[in-house]
Protein backbone atom coordinates (compact mmCIF):
# COMPACT_ATOMS: atom_id res chain seq x y z
CA UNK A 1 0.00 0.00 0.00
CA UNK A 2 2.49 2.59 -1.26
CA UNK A 3 -0.10 5.34 -1.46
CA UNK A 4 -0.55 5.30 2.32
CA UNK A 5 3.17 5.82 2.86
CA UNK A 6 3.26 8.69 0.38
CA UNK A 7 0.26 10.45 1.89
CA UNK A 8 1.62 9.86 5.39
CA UNK A 9 5.01 11.34 4.51
CA UNK A 10 3.30 14.27 2.80
CA UNK A 11 1.17 15.11 5.84
CA UNK A 12 3.94 14.65 8.40
CA UNK A 13 6.40 16.75 6.42
CA UNK A 14 3.86 19.52 5.90
CA UNK A 15 3.37 19.64 9.66
CA UNK A 16 7.14 19.86 10.16
CA UNK A 17 7.37 22.57 7.52
CA UNK A 18 4.72 24.65 9.25
CA UNK A 19 6.57 24.13 12.52
CA UNK A 20 9.82 25.38 11.01
CA UNK A 21 8.26 28.25 9.06
CA UNK A 22 8.21 30.73 11.92
CA UNK A 23 11.83 30.45 13.00
CA UNK A 24 13.66 29.38 9.86
CA UNK A 25 11.61 29.79 6.68
CA UNK A 26 14.66 28.89 4.58
CA UNK A 27 14.98 25.48 6.23
CA UNK A 28 11.24 24.99 5.83
CA UNK A 29 11.61 25.59 2.09
CA UNK A 30 14.42 23.03 1.91
CA UNK A 31 12.22 20.56 3.74
CA UNK A 32 9.49 21.20 1.13
CA UNK A 33 11.98 20.50 -1.66
CA UNK A 34 13.05 17.27 0.01
CA UNK A 35 9.46 16.12 0.48
CA UNK A 36 8.65 16.64 -3.20
CA UNK A 37 11.83 14.80 -4.00
CA UNK A 38 10.99 11.79 -1.81
CA UNK A 39 7.51 11.46 -3.26
CA UNK A 40 8.81 11.57 -6.80
CA UNK A 41 11.60 9.09 -6.12
CA UNK A 42 8.94 6.72 -4.79
CA UNK A 43 7.01 7.03 -8.08
CA UNK A 44 9.93 6.73 -10.48
CA UNK A 45 9.77 2.92 -10.72
CA UNK A 46 6.07 2.92 -11.58
CA UNK A 47 6.61 5.64 -14.18
CA UNK A 48 9.35 3.62 -15.88
CA UNK A 49 6.99 0.61 -16.03
CA UNK A 50 4.34 2.80 -17.68
CA UNK A 51 6.86 4.07 -20.20
CA UNK A 52 7.96 0.51 -21.04
CA UNK A 53 4.29 -0.26 -21.76
CA UNK A 54 4.05 2.80 -24.01
CA UNK A 55 7.22 1.75 -25.85
CA UNK A 56 5.83 -1.76 -26.26
CA UNK A 57 2.54 -0.48 -27.68
CA UNK A 58 4.37 1.91 -29.99
CA UNK A 59 6.47 -1.00 -31.20
CA UNK A 60 3.36 -3.06 -31.86
CA UNK A 61 1.69 -0.20 -33.75
CA UNK A 62 5.07 0.25 -35.54
CA UNK A 63 5.06 3.98 -34.84
CA UNK A 64 8.43 5.56 -35.59
CA UNK A 65 10.62 5.52 -32.43
CA UNK A 66 11.51 9.21 -32.69
CA UNK A 67 7.96 10.35 -32.01
CA UNK A 68 7.53 8.27 -28.86
CA UNK A 69 10.92 9.36 -27.56
CA UNK A 70 10.07 13.01 -28.18
CA UNK A 71 6.78 12.60 -26.34
CA UNK A 72 8.56 11.04 -23.36
CA UNK A 73 11.11 13.86 -23.30
CA UNK A 74 8.33 16.45 -23.46
CA UNK A 75 6.62 14.76 -20.51
CA UNK A 76 9.90 14.83 -18.60
CA UNK A 77 10.54 18.49 -19.32
CA UNK A 78 6.95 19.37 -18.42
CA UNK A 79 7.29 17.53 -15.13
CA UNK A 80 10.60 19.12 -14.13
CA UNK A 81 9.42 22.63 -15.07
CA UNK A 82 6.22 22.14 -13.09
CA UNK A 83 8.19 20.75 -10.12
CA UNK A 84 10.50 23.78 -10.04
CA UNK A 85 7.74 26.30 -10.73
CA UNK A 86 5.51 25.08 -7.92
CA UNK A 87 8.42 24.96 -5.46
CA UNK A 88 9.46 28.54 -6.17
CA UNK A 89 5.82 29.61 -6.01
CA UNK A 90 5.60 28.01 -2.55
CA UNK A 91 8.62 29.99 -1.53
CA UNK A 92 6.66 33.10 -2.49
CA UNK A 93 8.71 34.00 -5.58
CA UNK A 94 6.01 33.80 -8.26
CA UNK A 95 8.10 35.87 -10.68
CA UNK A 96 10.83 33.23 -10.80
CA UNK A 97 8.14 30.53 -11.07
CA UNK A 98 6.71 32.14 -14.20
CA UNK A 99 10.23 32.39 -15.68
CA UNK A 100 10.73 28.67 -15.10
CA UNK A 101 7.39 27.87 -16.72
CA UNK A 102 8.30 30.05 -19.70
CA UNK A 103 11.59 28.18 -20.09
CA UNK A 104 9.73 24.86 -19.89
CA UNK A 105 7.34 25.93 -22.66
CA UNK A 106 10.19 27.11 -24.86
CA UNK A 107 12.06 23.81 -24.51
CA UNK A 108 8.91 21.82 -25.21
CA UNK A 109 8.29 23.82 -28.36
CA UNK A 110 11.90 23.33 -29.32
CA UNK A 111 11.50 19.57 -29.02
CA UNK A 112 8.27 19.47 -31.01
CA UNK A 113 9.75 21.16 -34.11
CA UNK A 114 10.52 17.90 -36.02
CA UNK A 115 7.03 16.56 -35.29
CA UNK A 116 5.40 19.78 -36.49
CA UNK A 117 7.42 19.83 -39.70
CA UNK A 118 6.56 16.19 -40.38
CA UNK A 119 2.89 16.99 -39.77
CA UNK A 120 2.88 19.95 -42.15
CA UNK A 121 4.65 17.97 -44.87
CA UNK A 122 2.12 15.15 -44.47
CA UNK A 123 -0.77 17.61 -44.83
CA UNK A 124 0.78 19.32 -47.83
CA UNK A 125 1.25 15.88 -49.37
CA UNK A 126 -2.52 15.44 -49.57
CA UNK A 127 -2.94 18.38 -51.93
CA UNK A 128 -2.35 17.41 -55.60
CA UNK A 129 0.23 19.32 -57.69
Amino acid sequence: MDILQIVGIGIVSSILILLLKEQKSSLAFMLAIFTGLIIFLALIQQISHIFKLIDYMAGKANIHGVYVETILKIIGIAYIAEFGAHLTKDAGLSSIASKIELAGKVFILLLSIPILTALIEAILGFFPG
Binding site: L27, I33, F34, L37, F40, I44, I47, S48, G76, Y79
Partner: peptide, 28 residues
Protein backbone atom coordinates in the same frame (compact mmCIF):
# COMPACT_ATOMS: atom_id res chain seq x y z
CA UNK B 1 22.93 24.18 10.20
CA UNK B 2 21.82 25.74 6.96
CA UNK B 3 24.86 24.45 5.07
CA UNK B 4 24.43 20.89 6.39
CA UNK B 5 20.80 20.82 5.29
CA UNK B 6 21.81 22.35 1.96
CA UNK B 7 24.26 19.51 1.29
CA UNK B 8 21.67 16.86 2.13
CA UNK B 9 19.03 18.45 -0.10
CA UNK B 10 21.46 19.03 -2.98
CA UNK B 11 22.58 15.40 -2.92
CA UNK B 12 18.94 14.38 -3.03
CA UNK B 13 18.23 16.74 -5.93
CA UNK B 14 21.21 15.45 -7.89
CA UNK B 15 19.93 11.92 -7.39
CA UNK B 16 16.42 12.98 -8.48
CA UNK B 17 17.63 14.66 -11.66
CA UNK B 18 19.80 11.64 -12.49
CA UNK B 19 16.77 9.35 -12.12
CA UNK B 20 14.63 11.68 -14.23
CA UNK B 21 17.27 11.70 -16.94
CA UNK B 22 17.44 7.92 -17.02
CA UNK B 23 13.66 7.39 -17.02
CA UNK B 24 12.67 10.10 -19.49
CA UNK B 25 15.27 8.91 -22.06
CA UNK B 26 17.18 12.19 -21.92
CA UNK B 27 20.03 10.83 -24.00
CA UNK B 28 20.20 14.01 -26.12
Amino acid sequence: GFIIVLFIVLNGLADLFQQIKSVFLFQG
